[in-house]
Computed example of a mutant assay.
Amino acid sequence: MRAKDAVGRYGEDVAAAYVRDAGWVVLDRNWRGERGELDLVALDGTELVAVEVKTRRTATFGSPAEAVTPRKLARVRRLTAQWLAAHEVHPASVRIDVVAVLVTGRGAAQVDHLVGVV
């Protein structure tokens, strides 16, 4: 596994633990759709949340959340619709969140959770 892939996987593990600790139920991880992948799909109460996880080792080029572009969010919206069509889940509502993870190598990873980014 490449170092970049390992950092991404670690960030997804941190994000999954973060939402579980918040009381969410993780329904899916790394779900592959026709044109991409959803990092996390979870239930926050009765609301379905598609979570885009961005992980970085440094903030030199901005925060991890800044890497989530409008184009990426459009892809996440399309994939969320595909996920809903493929599963027997009928949430009260749906939203997209971003969990940005900064892994500096010193201490615990820093987590920034952006709710309802679309």
Rank of each mutant, 00 (worst) to 15 (best):
P91N: 03
T80M: 02
L48R: 03
A100N: 03
R2K: 15
T46W: 15
R32Q: 13
R56H: 15
A16C: 12
A65E: 07
L114T: 02
I96H: 01
P91D: 04
G62L: 04
R106Y: 15
A85K: 12
A109G: 05
V118W: 14
G116S: 06
P91Q: 02
T104N: 05
F61C: 13
F61S: 10
E37S: 03
H113Q: 05
G8K: 04
G45A: 04
V118S: 15
R20I: 08
V103E: 02
K54R: 10
L38P: 01
E52Y: 00
D5F: 15
L102P: 05
V111Y: 03
V89H: 07
L73C: 03
V94T: 12
K4P: 07
H90T: 11
T46V: 12
H90L: 12
T60E: 11
E52N: 00
A67L: 14
V94I: 14
Q82T: 07
E34S: 09
V98R: 01
R32I: 06
R35G: 09
A3Y: 15
A67S: 15
V111I: 06
R9A: 10
V49S: 07
V103Y: 02
R106E: 15
G45K: 03
G11V: 03
A6F: 12
V68E: 01
F61V: 12
E66M: 13
G33Y: 01
A59P: 06
T60N: 13
L73T: 04
A50P: 00
Q82M: 08
E66H: 15
G11W: 01
G23D: 08
D39E: 05
G23E: 07
V49I: 14
